[in-house]
Computed example of a mutant assay.
Amino acid sequence: MPDPADGCPDPAARALVAAAFAAISSRYVLGRHQIGAAVLDGDGHIHLGLHLDAMVGRAAVCAEAGALSAARLATGAELVSVAAVRYPKPTEAPVARVVPPCGLCRELLLDHAPNLHAVVRNGTHAVLTPLAGLLPHKYVGTKWPAGLTPKP
C-alpha cells in the first residue's frame, strides 16, 4: 500500500503522516480502528492516537483525541501540529489517505493548542495549515479565561 507521507513536501508534515500511517497500519481492525493520528510537540516528540469505534457511536473516540491525551500525559510542551490517516476498508481501493480532524476534534484540539497546525490535503499534496482556519467560528465559553488554555 502506498505511504500517504510520500505526498507531503514539508518534512514535519511527512513525519507526522508517516507516524500516523504506521500506527493505523499496525492496528487496523475492521469496525474497530480505522484512523491513526500523530501530534507533534514543541520538543520534537510525536504522540500517537488510535480511533476507537464503539457499539454506541457517541461513545467512539477519535484518533486525534487519543493523540492529544497521549501528548498531555507525556509533556506540558506546546503542541505544534497534528495529522490523521484513514486506513481503507477491505472493500475499498488499497489507498490510505490523510483526513482532516472532524469538527469535534477541531474544537477539542483548539481548546488545548490554539496555535496548532493540521495536515490536510491540498490537491495532490498534504500540507500544514492553521487549524483555526478550518474552524473560523470556534465556540468560546466561560469555563476558562479568554485566551487561556488549561495547564497540563
Rank of each mutant, 00 (worst) to 15 (best):
H125G: 07
G103E: 09
R14W: 08
P145E: 01
V85G: 10
H47N: 08
S69M: 12
K138N: 01
P100Q: 12
R58F: 15
E78M: 05
D10P: 07
P94Y: 13
A65N: 11
C8G: 11
R14Q: 06
F21Q: 04
H137L: 06
V140K: 02
A83M: 07
P130D: 01
L135R: 07
P11M: 01
K138H: 03
N122L: 10
P136W: 04
R58K: 13
Y87F: 13
A84I: 06
A60C: 07
K143V: 14
H125S: 05
H137A: 09
H51K: 10
A59H: 02
P90G: 11
G36V: 01
V56A: 06
C62R: 13
A126G: 07
P152W: 05
A74P: 10
R97A: 15
D3M: 02
L73N: 04
H33N: 03
A23I: 10
F21H: 07
G42I: 06
A15R: 13
S26R: 05
H51Y: 06
P88N: 04
A132P: 00
M1H: 14
R97C: 15
A13H: 11
K143S: 15
H137S: 09
S26P: 02
V85H: 08
M55D: 15
A37M: 09
L68W: 02
A13P: 15
V120M: 06
A12R: 08
